[in-house]
């Protein structure tokens, strides 16, 4: 049935509203990032800068030192924070993929004594909110001397992301036809050989989706690194940005430029792998 003109109008209006709602803050952020500090403090507010400038971006990417007088961090620390975030994201994603692809495949294709219970235990950890375990987590990491270490951060990221990833892969593999894998077993492969040569290539789309999901999740982590990192060598971009806020003054153009730059990598990931993410999230349905 073709929608009526009125229904079309409502739909277009709804979608427009949704786009404005989603993109509005980003547009405002871009405008602010290209403004000067005095412009951001004008009353009434000035939305479009009179003389747009990219100085803040240059400072952030070029290592120049700009900051609020009373802020804990300055723009020169931004590059290192981006590298820290990217490194933690890539390493965590690699670890989570390795674990979840194998575990998801194992849980969905093989049955061993206690396998269902084990899966439930893994999945149950997903429902525990991170703020309920922060104190215990901090104590444990301190005990293991993993505070302010890259390894500690990755360990916590991986353990908090892996259950969701395992569950997604479990559903994804259940939807894959087992026949090619069985054909490979008959064609001379061991089970691992069939997994490596036939199942893994079949999973390409799922791996791409999971890569995106885990990367987006890790890139945006704030509470865990806030708790576990306090040195420039380990702080990620999410923590550094908050430190651009001074006690009494804040350089808003610098702050928003830092935010906009930080959004670009996950936005690219989401755009490129969008199709795979949708497929992954609807698997098992």
């Amino acid at each position: 049935m073709r929608p009526t003109p009125a229904a079309n109008l409502v739909r277009v209006a709804g979608v427009t509203l949704l786009i404005l709602w989603s993109l509005g803050p980003i547009v405002m952020g871009v405008m602010t990032s290209m403004s000067t500090q005095p412009e951001t403090q004008q009353v009434p507010a000035r939305w479009i800068p009179e003389d747009p400038t990219l100085d803040n971006y240059r400072a952030l990417l070029g290592g120049e030192k700009i900051s609020s007088d009373d802020a804990a961090a300055d723009s020169s620390q931004y590059g290192r924070a981006i590298v820290n975030t990217a490194l933690a994201t890539v390493v965590t994603t690699a670890i989570v993929l390795a674990i979840s692809v194998c575990a998801g495949y194992g849980f969905s294709r093989t049955e061993f004594k206690g396998s269902k219970q084990l899966l439930w235990i893994v999945l149950a950890t997903m429902v525990i909110p991170i703020f309920t375990i922060v104190v215990a987590l901090y104590k444990l990491m301190a005990e293991l001397q993993l505070i302010n270490t890259f390894a500690g951060l990755v360990l916590v990221y991986a353990s908090s992301t892996a259950p969701l990833a395992i569950w997604l892969f479990y559903n994804y593999v259940r939807d894959l036809p087992p026949d090619p894998e069985e054909a490979a077993l008959i064609d001379g492969c061991t089970r691992f050989g069939a997994f490596r040569r036939v199942v893994l290539p079949q999973m390409r789309s799922g791996i791409a989706a999971l890569t995106a999901i885990v990367m987006l999740f890790v890139w945006g982590q704030f509470l865990i690194p806030l708790l576990l990192t306090s040195t420039e060598e380990t702080k990620p971009v999410t923590v550094i940005i908050t430190e651009f806020i001074g006690k009494y003054t804040t350089n808003y153009p610098l702050l928003t430029a830092a935010g906009i730059l930080a959004v670009i990598p996950p936005a690219i990931i989401a755009l490129v792998l969008n199709r795979h993410i949708r497929g992954m999230l609807s698997a098992g349905g």
Partner: peptide
């Protein structure tokens, strides 16, 4: 014995072809 040691070939209902391989790769895989 495991399947690989039985010296059998099987044709599946779904054909079970290896989607990422060419026809040549599929036929020559075994």
């Amino acid at each position: 014995l495991p399947p690989r040691k039985r010296d059998v070939a099987m044709v599946f209902q779904s054909y079970a072809l290896y989607a990422h391989m060419s026809v040549r790769g599929n036929i020559g895989f075994g």
